[in-house]
Write a protein that binds this DNA or RNA. Sequence first.
DNA 1: TTGTATGCGTTATCAG
DNA 2: CTGATAACGCATACAA
Lengths: 332, 332
Amino acid sequence: MARPTIEDVARIAGVSIATVSRCLHLPDLVAAKTRDRVLEAVRQTGYTLNTAAQSLRQRRSNTVLVVVPDIGNTFFSEVLGGIEQAASAAGLTMLIGNTGRNRACEDSYVRYLLNGRADGALLLAEPLAAWFDVPTANDLGIKPIVTISEVGPDHPTVAVSIDNAAASQAAVGHLIAQGHRRIAHLTGPASNILTGQRLTGYRRALAGAGLDYTLELQGDFGVASGRAAFALYRAQAMRPTAIFCANDETAMGFIAAAHHGGVRVPQDISVVGFDDIHFAQSFIPALTTIRQPRAEMGAAAMRLLLAIIAGEAPASVRLPFALMLRDSTAAV
Amino acid sequence: MARPTIEDVARIAGVSIATVSRCLHLPDLVAAKTRDRVLEAVRQTGYTLNTAAQSLRQRRSNTVLVVVPDIGNTFFSEVLGGIEQAASAAGLTMLIGNTGRNRACEDSYVRYLLNGRADGALLLAEPLAAWFDVPTANDLGIKPIVTISEVGPDHPTVAVSIDNAAASQAAVGHLIAQGHRRIAHLTGPASNILTGQRLTGYRRALAGAGLDYTLELQGDFGVASGRAAFALYRAQAMRPTAIFCANDETAMGFIAAAHHGGVRVPQDISVVGFDDIHFAQSFIPALTTIRQPRAEMGAAAMRLLLAIIAGEAPASVRLPFALMLRDSTAAV
DNA sequence: TTGTATGCGTTATCAG
DNA sequence: CTGATAACGCATACAA
C-alpha cells in the first residue's frame, strides 16, 4: 500500500487536512482534544511529511549544500562533522557536493542553489567565479553562501577562517626562537589561496628576525610532495636545520622520507606542520603543528549561514589557531 | 525577479509547457526547429528545473541517503568518495546522514526514506533494528538498502564487504610464518560486528598453527585504546612478540606508545593493522596491514543499489582484501 | 477553533 | 509533433 498522505490522516482523525497540517506545525492553534485525535491518527498511519511537496509549497528546502574539494581528505571531513552537527541542530539537512577539485563539477553544484535543492551553500574551497556569474548571480545573490578556510582578503562572501599568515609566522617564529637560522618552507600548490598566505607568514617571520637564508620548495599538500621535498632538501649544499610545511600531510611525507634516508627528526632537522590533523599527535615523532579548530570552523560557518538566512548581515569570522608544540621540533 | 519557471520558458519560446518539458527529457520527440527555440529560451532565462516539483510529481528524488557513523573518520570518508563518484555518474545526489553512532540519530534518518527525500540508502554500519521495524518495514521494504563493510552472516540486506575473518587469518598467518609464536590481538569494541569476525580469524590462525599462547586485549578502534593496550602489553609476564590490531588507528596508537616507552617496532614487537588507511604507509614504521578497497566498496554498493532500484535482485558482494607487507613487522 | 480552496512547478495522459 | 489539463502532497489566506 502506498505511503499515507496528509489526507489519509485527516480522514482517520475526522478533520480537514488544514487541521492536520496545523497540528504538525502550529500545535498551539488547535484544540487539545482535536490534536490528540490527529496525532493518534499520525501514529496509526505512520505518516511522514512529504518533503518534496513541502519544499515546493514553501519554496525552501531546509537543506544546505556543502561543497568540498575532496571528501576523503581528513581535514575536510572533520569540518564536515562540525557542519553536520550545527545543521542538524537547526533542523537542516546537509547535502554534500564533492568536486574532486574539478571546475566543471563545482560549476554543476551551483545549480543546486538555483534549482531549489538547497537554501544556501557552504564552500570549503575558494569559490570559483561561477558562483557569482551572470545570469547566475542575479538570482543567486539572494542565496546565502559562506566560505570556510580558503578565503582571500577581498573575498566576495562571508567567511570563517583562521589568520593563516599569522599562524605561519608563529610557527616559523617558534623555530627561530629555538635557535634555527636556516629554515625552509614547503609550500602548498600555487593554485591554492592558502599557499600565498602561509608563504607570507614564513617570509615575514624570517624578515622579522633578519634572516637571509631562504628555501622555498613547491609542494601540493600531498604526502608524495613531502617525500619529494626531502630529496630536494638533501640536494642542498647548505641544508636548512628546520622546515615549515604548509600542511601536516606534506610534513609527514617529508619525515617518512627522512626516516628512510637516515635523517633524524628532530635531531637533524626540525619539522613543523599545519592543520593538526587527527594523526598528527600519533605520528612518530608527534608533529609540532598549527591547530585549526576544524569542527568549530564548520559549526561557525553553519551559524553564519543561518544568520544570513534569517535576514541578518553577519561579518566574517576569524577563529583562533594554536601552535601545538610536540616532538618533531627541537632547539638547534 | 523570481526564478524562471517552465512557464516563462514556454511563453518566450512560444510553445506550451508540455513541449518545454519534452525538450528537456525526450528531445527526440520534438521537432528540431521547435527544440532550438526552446533551448534558446532556456539559455536566455537561465531556467533550471525545480527539483522539488519534479520529485513531487515523479515520486522519486534521485537522491541516495548515505548513513555513516562518523564522517570525520578517514575510513568512512574514503568510502564516501567512492559512493559519490558512482552516484554522480548515475545522476544521483548523495545525501549524508551522520549518526555519531547514536541510535536515536540513526532512527531519524530512517524517515528520509519514508518521506521521500531519498530513493534508497547505503549504510556504512550494521543497521539498527529501526530500518526493518513496523510500521516502517512494510513501506520501507520497497526502498532499497545496501550495507557496507559491517555485515553479519545472516544480514537482512544486500551488502558489500570483505571477508574479515579470512583477512585476519591471513594477517596473523603472516606473523606465524615469520616465526612468531606469541601473538596478541587488540580487538575492536564489543558492540561492533566486525570485532567478532576479526577475532575469529585471529583464533583460527592460532589454532591452525597449534599455538597455545593467546592474549586478547579489548580496544575500541580509537588511537587511545591502542595506547592503553600498550600498557597492558607491558604488564604481561610473558609478552607477545607480535600483535594484530583490529584496525590501523589502534595499531598507530600502540606503536606511538611503544615508541615513547622505548619499545621498538618491529625489533621488539611486530605490529599489524587493518584497513590500510591513507596514513598507514607514511607512518613510521610504515604499517603492515590489511587493505580494504574502500572507494571500490563504496562504488560497488552504489551499483548494487542502482541495480535494486532498477528491479533486479543482485546478490551481496565480497571484495578482495590484500595483505600489505611493510615495516612494522619482522621475522622473530 | 476549524474548514475550504488555491497554487507551488512538474510530468504524464490524452486529444488534436 | 504539439497543446490542454489533471494530478503530485502540502501550507496558507480567507471564511465560517
